[in-house]
Design a binder for these strands. Structure first.
Length: 488
RNA sequence: GCAGACGUAGCUCAGUUGGUUAGAGCGUCGGAUUGUGGCUCCGAAGGUCGGUGGUUCGAAUCCACUCGUCUGUACCA
């Protein structure tokens, strides 16, 4: 009773995805457009590795009980903990600190890279995803923050988003701190409660003013019936916060002055509220932002592949982090920067139709009729001629003896054209050039297989010398047809 | 982490009050067609019924635990 051996199950760790050719090409295109904006603004690239020593990354110090909480960590052979980076900001702070004597400040820099988070994945949330950051390190003034906001706006438009489809929302952490102080939550002893309040404010998009009020007070019950404990603030304090984040009340403090300065810069440069807007409910990055904070939000609804309408919300954000480099150097090195969630933004752009997903035409296929060395050389020569003429081409590399399979392969691969030369054609000095796209169209009208095979639809015979010009002409005409179809 | 729903072929799903050898459609592969894609027809492969344990003469079906997926929520540097 020999049991069948258990086959190994091919599977991907949850929260990770393979990327298709379309995805990779679309991402490259997107990154190119973003990079062009950053370069234009005078930023230079820098790259850091995926791994860092865990203590350099921030608050997740290696804890012997849970070294992998939130991050992916491994122990090096000298027992030091290393982690996969979870953002690009902490590694940048490390890089700048390590090279502080060589780097000319203010340092304007950008980088794209994969980051990793060891947490529960969800729809559109992965454990590996790409961020594209820009930072100005060593610039204390809010004019640097203002520039970042304008660059974010320009980036959104470079990606094809129209005015009104996105907005950059700006706030200042010092303003929020002032509000918290005003309701008696200042001081060390209230740090935990302050966090709860800030988290509640951050939920405004999701739950609305009423939901935020519940979270500021007793708490809120979610759709599954689970209860989230609130901050337990008295009603007067709730009123103050609600009044503030709904924009009814303002505070007169340093944060507000900074916001006013930034607003002035935006106005002078022509960035009106349809692009950049001061919004008192923006929170972001609770732990390390110290001044202005900003985020890019999409304003249009996105319909996902299941046909459900999803609010996309934030696709990127950043702020001022004056303390991050100081952790290493002891020197005050103020910095501001932001991060774009490339993978997330790409999903949105795809839904908006701003990304052509299959621009690339599949290669021309040179089929193999005869398998002797001499003939194989002839086929390969045709392929090389096409390639040298700048045309994507390949010779069939499967089992050539089943000719039908070669065309089936070409069909599934979406090849535009197949080249056929058997011994008859060879002796006549000719080749067959088969238009697979036109042929597919014609196939709808033919129901009987014998006719289909013998009529050889959309196939023409030309002299061997005319290979390149015939193929090129056919490709051009196919491209015209596509352009026509696009318009219609 | 917490709460809920759901796990049957590669995919989408049937499977009667617990009852022989667990089915269908799509897809895959082969053939009809040895030099022509599509259509049609014929055939084949493909399952530890998520896993473990229990109840039972008998479990895909009932029970417990566990793993995984999905939804909401918490956390999110």
């Amino acid at each position: 009773m020999a049991k069948k051996p258990n086959k190994l199950k091919a599977r991907l760790p949850r929260g990770f995805v393979d990327r298709s050719a379309d995805d990779i090409r679309a991402t490259d295109e997107m990154i190119g457009k973003i990079r062009a904006v950053y370069e234009q603004y005078g930023f230079d690239p820098v790259e850091t590795p995926a791994f860092e020593y865990t203590d350099c990354l921030g608050k997740f110090l290696p804890d012997t009980d849970r070294p992998n909480a939130g991050v992916f960590s491994v122990q090096d052979d000298d027992e030091q903990w290393m982690s996969l980076r979870y953002d690009l900001t902490a590694p940048l702070a490390r890089h700048v600190s390590e090279n502080i004597n060589e780097i000319q400040l203010p340092y304007r820099t950008y980088r794209a890279g994969w980051v990793f988070r060891n947490e529960k994945p969800g729809p559109g949330r992965f454990r590996q995803f790409m961020q594209f950051d820009a930072d100005t390190v060593g610039a204390p003034g809010v004019q640097a923050d203002a520039e970042m906001c304008m660059m974010m706006a320009d980036t959104m438009e470079a990606l094809g988003m129209a005015r009104g489809q996105y907005v950059i929302r700006v706030n200042n952490r010092k303003v929020l701190d002032g509000v918290l102080e005003a309701i008696g939550l200042g001081g060390e002893e209230n740090a935990e409660r302050r966090l709860t309040v800030l988290r509640a404010i951050d939920k405004l998009d999701k739950f609305g003013l009423e939901g935020v009020r519940l979270l500021l007070g007793e708490g809120r019950k979610d759709d599954s019936g689970d209860f989230t404990k609130g901050a337990g603030l008295p009603v007067e304090a709730q009123d103050k916060i609600i009044g503030f984040i709904s924009g009814e009340a303002q505070l007169d403090n340093e944060g507000q002055t900074e916001l006013d300065t930034m607003a002035g810069i935006f106005a002078t440069c022509g960035y009106e509220a349809d692009r950049i807007k001061i919004d008192p409910s923006v929170v972001r990055g609770l732990e390390y932002y110290t001044g202005p904070v900003y985020e890019a939000e999409l304003l249009f609804d996105v319909t996902n592949e299941k046909g459900e309408v999803v609010q996309f919300g934030s696709v990127g954000g950043g702020g001022r982090y004056d303390g991050l480099v100081k952790r290493f150097t002891g020197r005050d090195v103020p910095a501001t920067g932001f991060s774009i969630g490339v993978s997330r933004l790409m999903t949105a752009l795809k839904n908006l139709g701003k990304l052509q997903t299959s621009e690339v035409v599949a290669p021309v296929l040179v089929t193999v009729m005869d398998g002797d060395t001499e003939a194989l050389g002839r086929y390969q020569k045709m392929v090389q001629e096409l390639r040298q003429a700048g045309i994507r081409a390949e010779m069939y590399q499967g089992n050539w003896k089943k000719f039908g399979n070669q065309l089936k392969y070409a069909d599934r691969r979406n090849c535009p054209i197949a080249i056929i030369q058997g011994s008859d054609e060879f002796e006549a000095g000719e080749i067959q050039v088969k238009d697979l796209i036109e042929g597919k169209r014609l196939s709808a009208e033919i129901t009987d297989n014998v006719t289909w095979r013998e009529s050889r639809p959309a196939q023409l015979t030309v002299k061997r010398d005319a290979l390149v010009e015939t193929v090129r002409a056919l490709l051009d005409s196919q491209a015209d047809d596509r352009a026509q179809a696009e318009k219609a």
